[in-house]
Structures are given as C-alpha cells and as structure tokens.
C-alpha cells in the first residue's frame, strides 16, 4: 500500500460534486461502507462530507479524492491490503 498519488489509479468521475461521488458508490459498488472525514486511506486523510461512502469490488477500492481547485474525483485502485482493512466495515446491498 502506498500514497494514492503514486499508485496506478483510474478515474471513474472527474470534477464531480461530493454528493455525486457518494451516490455513485451507493448505486454501483457491490459492497460499500462509510468512513468519517480524516480516515486514512492510501496514506492520505480522506476529505469529505460525512457520511463518506467507500466502495469495494473484490480488491478494488473506490473512493472520493478532493482537490481545492478541481473538485472531487472518484478513483479506483486495486489494493488487497486496503480492501482487507475496509472489509469489517462493509455493508452488503
């Protein structure tokens, strides 16, 4: 597990609103959980309006990433370690 900016991520949503990212995770991810602002994921403290929805699809983690000038991006990164760490929090749909 490394810093998000150094990992091979894919962008699912670009320059979206925070609510759009949460809605996408809740609708499209097979499993998801909620974390609090400041939760550490890929060595970054997550920025967000609670509840912050994080999705899991196998070992792929789907999460929002906010930059001040660019809005919120919904990213996906495959990482078994982070996926395992989130598993106890998961909700099944």
């Amino acid at each position: 597990m490394g810093c998000v900016e150094d990992m091979p991520y894919e962008v699912i949503l670009s320059k979206a609103s925070f609510a759009e990212c949460r809605e996408y995770v809740e609708k499209h991810c097979p499993r998801y959980c909620y974390v609090e602002p400041g939760f550490k994921l890929f060595e970054k403290h997550i920025i967000g309006v609670p509840p912050i929805a994080i999705g899991l699809d196998g070992d792929v983690v789907i999460f929002p990433f906010t930059k001040p000038c660019y809005g919120t991006f919904l990213l996906r990164i495959e990482d078994a370690g982070e996926a395992a760490r989130l598993t106890p929090r998961l909700k099944r749909r």
């Binding site: 925070f18 602002p37 403290h45 920025i47 967000g48 309006v49 906010t66 001040p68 809005g71 919120t72």
Partner: peptide, 29 residues
C-alpha cells in the same frame, strides 16, 4: 487536514472559505 485528524492542531476558531463544492467539502471535513 492530516494534522487536525491526528490532533496535532486544535485551533479554537476556524474560518473556512467556500465558493465551490470542493471548498464546502474541505469545510465540512
């Protein structure tokens, strides 16, 4: 934000500026 999350910084007053969804998101955090 990391320092706030880790309790290394605990101001008694915070003024947050927001003119976009991202600004509001940082403020909510």
């Amino acid at each position: 934000i990391g320092e706030l999350a880790e309790g290394k910084r605990t101001p008694e007053l915070c003024v947050a500026f927001a003119h976009s969804d991202a600004g509001l998101t940082f403020g909510a955090t």
